[in-house]
């Protein structure tokens, strides 16, 4: 604590207007924080490994044999198709992880974003800077969205690479039996990754809304886990089919649509709109909670 008095305040009553830190700087700081966190890196590494593990396992098993029955829930038959098809592997991996794993990672990031910061007392630091609560939520939602894109992107990337290494570029076959060129296949995977990112962002937004109401990131994780499980169960109850269009995961099964040729866009568009609705609801509730809660 040496004397560094030159950093003492020059009286500057003129600079009294409202001022705020530039938004890009906040976004950069948020991203640096998310991607410096060991937990985030471990999760991304894990996600990156999934397509590789599936690919290697399918290769080791060699001939997967005729799959029994077909359409068996979360990409069960997709995984079987993924053997010997470089296009299907990344999407099968995404479809499988979208069932539970990916939503949980989105929930983890959403939980850390507000509840975790609150628990560490770090949210105060930015609120006192000051960062207005609306901007804070924007930054947090942006961070969650970026993570969602990274999570889906990293799986798609390792999925493609693994598929290509195992099967080469000629085995790019759609579910409809058409052979695709490499750019076409890449586009399909990109669409799938983008769509999955949007769904994850919706989960993350819901996680943020819960996150704004609690100090415990584990509560967020548990709520989202419970929600995903309950939604999946509801999805199976035909008696509740009037409810199904309201459930976020109603179109998660339709990810396989990108593999069809020509690609039917209806279900995917519906799923995207549904995710957007969830984002609108969740972020507005999160804002309402965050802007009135004590910091």
């Amino acid at each position: 604590m040496t004397e560094t008095l030159e950093s003492a305040p020059p009286p500057s009553p003129a600079a009294d207007g409202p001022s705020r830190a530039p938004l890009p700087r906040l976004l950069r700081a948020e991203l640096r924080w998310i991607f410096r966190r060991p937990r985030t890196l471990v999760v991304l590494g894990l996600l990156a490994a999934i397509p590789v593990i599936i690919g290697v396992a399918l290769t080791l098993v060699d001939s997967p044999g005729p799959p029994d029955g077909g359409g068996d829930g979360d990409g069960g038959s997709l995984v079987a198709t993924a053997a010997g098809n470089a296009l299907v592997l990344p999407i099968a991996a995404l479809a499988m992880a979208l069932g539970l794993l990916l939503p949980l990672t989105a929930a983890m990031v959403g939980g850390d974003a507000l509840a975790g910061e609150q628990a560490h007392g770090t949210l105060r630091g930015w609120l006192l800077a000051p960062v207005s609560r609306g901007r804070l939520l924007f930054v947090k939602a942006f961070g969650v969205a970026t993570f969602a894109v990274c999570a889906a992107g990293v799986m798609a990337l390792t999925g493609i690479v693994t598929g290509l290494v195992i099967n080469g570029t000629d085995a790019l076959v759609s579910l409809s039996g058409t052979t695709l060129t490499f750019p076409e296949a890449l586009l399909k995977v990109a669409i799938a990754a983008g769509w999955v990112s949007l769904q994850l962002w919706a989960v993350g937004a819901v996680a943020l809304a819960i996150s704004a109401c609690t100090e415990h990131p584990m509560v967020v994780l548990a709520s989202v886990l419970g929600g995903v499980v309950v939604f999946s169960v509801l999805q199976f109850l035909d008696a509740l089919d009037w409810l199904h269009p309201f459930l976020l995961n109603a179109s998660w099964q339709d990810l396989a649509d990108v593999l069809r040729d020509p690609m039917p866009g209806g279900a995917l568009a519906e799923g995207a709109l549904r995710a957007a609705c969830y984002i609108a609801i969740a972020l507005s509730l999160a804002y309402a909670r965050l802007s009135t809660k004590d910091g």
Partner: peptide
């Protein structure tokens, strides 16, 4: 926000 989202759903 909720009304908008609910309307969409």
């Amino acid at each position: 926000g909720t009304a908008l989202g609910a309307a969409g759903l």
